[in-house]
């Protein structure tokens, strides 16, 4: 056999087409998967307390999150508990308040507000009923105040329920109270008939 002249022609080059595949090996690392940035709740070795999420400096508030004159944010008007909602009372507000109440309050206060939630039962914890004269006639800002700052053994829920939602809960609590203490004269004729009133 006669050896052909060693020339770098096209077909010879094709034999080395696999070489770029070696570049694939260079992609075997995870720094796109774990990029050098922090995720929420990640552990940090940079900060002394080990938290990547930085808690705000004590006694600071974010811009727009506090206004001492705003009833919406403080629950108070001129230092007194607000007796009216600082937001409009609508069916949507009550419905929204219902979802908040069922998620955050019902474990202890009970779905019906009688203080017999599943947690209260299992604790067992003494949880006051929402259906008492004092709470029926208290200014509605009181519920806002309690959710914001807690009361007795109840912790503050301010970091879980934003101010607008707290008012929704307060309004829903009033609906709950009304549902357990309604005047029969406010009901329609059919409803009264159903209850057996002449």
């Amino acid at each position: 056999m006669v050896q052909p002249a060693r020339k770098l022609n096209g077909s010879r080059l094709v034999r080395f087409a696999w070489l770029p595949l070696c570049l694939v090996l260079a992609a075997c690392h995870v720094d796109m998967y774990d990029q050098p940035r922090y995720q929420p709740n990640q552990v940090s070795t940079f900060f002394r307390d080990g938290r990547a999420m930085r808690p705000p400096v004590e006694n600071t508030v974010a811009i727009g999150s506090f206004d001492p004159d705003s009833a919406l944010l403080t629950g108070k008007v001129n230092g007194e508990l607000a007796s009216e909602l600082p937001v409009e009372l609508t069916a949507e507000l009550l419905e929204h308040g219902r979802t908040r109440y069922d998620a955050y309050c019902a474990p202890c206060h009970g779905i019906a507000g009688d203080g017999n939630g599943v947690i209260a039962y299992r604790g067992p914890l003494q949880v006051p009923s929402l259906h008492q004269d004092r709470l029926r006639t208290v200014a509605i800002g009181y519920f806002f105040e309690v959710i914001t700052n807690g009361v007795n053994r109840m912790y503050s829920y301010a970091n879980r329920i934003p101010p607008e939602d707290r008012w929704a809960v307060a309004a829903y609590v009033r609906a709950l109270q009304l549902s357990q203490y309604a005047d029969v004269n406010d009901l329609s004729a059919e409803e009264r008939q159903q209850l057996g009133v002449k």
């Binding site: 069922d102 998620a103 599943v118 329920i161």
Partner: peptide, 23 residues
């Protein structure tokens, strides 16, 4: 068993990208 709503602990799940880990 205790029938606690998800949002009781994962409170920001309806408002933020992160579901919120309970403090």
């Amino acid at each position: 068993q205790l029938m606690i709503d998800c949002r009781y602990c994962h409170a920001t799940v309806e408002r933020a990208a992160h579901a919120g880990f309970p403090s």
